[in-house]
Design a protein around this nucleic acid. Structure first.
Length: 312
DNA sequence: AACTCGGGGGA
DNA sequence: TCCCCAGAGTT
């Protein structure tokens, strides 16, 4: 705790005690690095400053604010949960938070400890690694990590304790080349001699190549897009429609996603099915699928500007 | 417990 | 290219 008070990063969600803002930050931080989430967090809260505004916003607005951050299901869960909160009130503890869509074991504990001071330890990737090394235990499951973290929890300041654990994992007890020389726990750490062995590496799924063909139609400066259905992946995002692949090839992109590598070929096509025409300017504020954005950059429909181009 | 999410970015 | 990130939901 002394180390944390000295070394904590000045992060935007550490400047508020608003449970809504902390909630938004925790959803954005799921499987997402702190530095990646910061600009999205700032923009999201500026546009949707409270839970009622979020609940009443259109899903397109929410998805557009999320575009580029990945794991878009999080945005839909957050929006759905905001509607529930507007109707039923903000949950008062971790158990109540846990019932909301998009909030699991980690996130319920994080919000409850940080916003409400509830003495419950979080287990994220940082805490797993820190505990595994501290005990030189390569194969602990989440429940076992949680029990050990809970034992150390400072119940007078559980939010700061949890953030201290994660901050340690993110800045000192890092996956590769940890800074054991400056670690305040080094002399208590059983894994100090060989930190890279903890936790044991997980076996990875083999990389799969997937061929995808999409159709591109441009007329009078507008491109034809379809909205992905609620039953599909990336539902709600605008995407290029599928193609038979028989039209003239206009380009190709590679789009890595988890254990897949999508090889997307872009073909000239006629507009088919439901869809909408977008100008390049309209796309800057539309929830566009990342692979579609790459295709539109590759074919020159969108200008090649600095990635992200997070315009309000 | 394993798998998916057709993510994203640092090293 | 590899690794893993303040994970959650589904099967």
């Amino acid at each position: 705790m002394a180390w944390y008070r000295r070394r904590r990063r000045d992060l935007p969600w550490r400047r508020t005690s608003d449970p809504y803002a902390i909630w938004v930050s925790e959803i954005m931080l799921q499987q997402t690095r702190v530095v990646a989430a910061i600009p999205y967090y700032e923009r999201f809260l500026a546009r949707l400053p409270d839970v009622a505004t979020l609940a009443r916003a259109r899903i397109d607005t929410v998805l557009a604010l999320w575009a580029g951050l990945g794991y878009y299901r999080r945005a839909r869960f957050l929006h759905a949960a905001a509607k529930i909160v507007l109707r039923e009130g903000f949950p008062k503890d971790a158990a109540g938070l846990r019932k909301l869509p998009g909030i699991g074991e980690y996130t319920s504990a994080a919000i409850a400890s940080i916003a409400f001071g509830e003495p419950v330890a979080v287990v994220d990737g940082n805490v797993e690694r820190l505990i595994a090394r501290l005990y030189a235990a390569p194969h602990l499951n989440k429940r076992e990590v949680g029990a050990r973290a809970q034992k150390w929890l400072d119940e007078s300041e559980p939010g700061d304790f949890n953030q201290a654990m994660m901050e340690m994992g993110a800045t000192v007890c890092t996956p590769r080349s940890p800074s054991c020389g400056t670690c305040p726990l080094a002399k208590h750490c059983a894994g100090r001699a060989n930190p890279e062995q903890y936790p044991a590496p997980k076996e990875r799924a083999p990389l799969i190549d997937v061929a995808v063909a999409v159709g591109l139609t441009v007329r009078e400066g507008r491109v034809f897009l379809r909205r992905r259905a609620s039953t599909e992946l990336n539902s709600g995002l605008w995407d290029l429609p599928a193609s038979t692949g028989r039209g003239k090839t206009l380009g190709a992109i590679s789009h890595g996603v988890l254990n897949q590598r999508l090889r997307v070929t872009i073909h000239a096509a006629r507009p088919r099915g439901e869809g909408r025409w977008f100008t390049a300017a309209q796309l800057s504020s539309a929830p566009l699928a990342t692979s579609a954005r790459k295709c539109l950059l590759a074919t020159g429909f969108l200008p090649q500007r600095g990635r992200g181009s997070v315009s309000a």
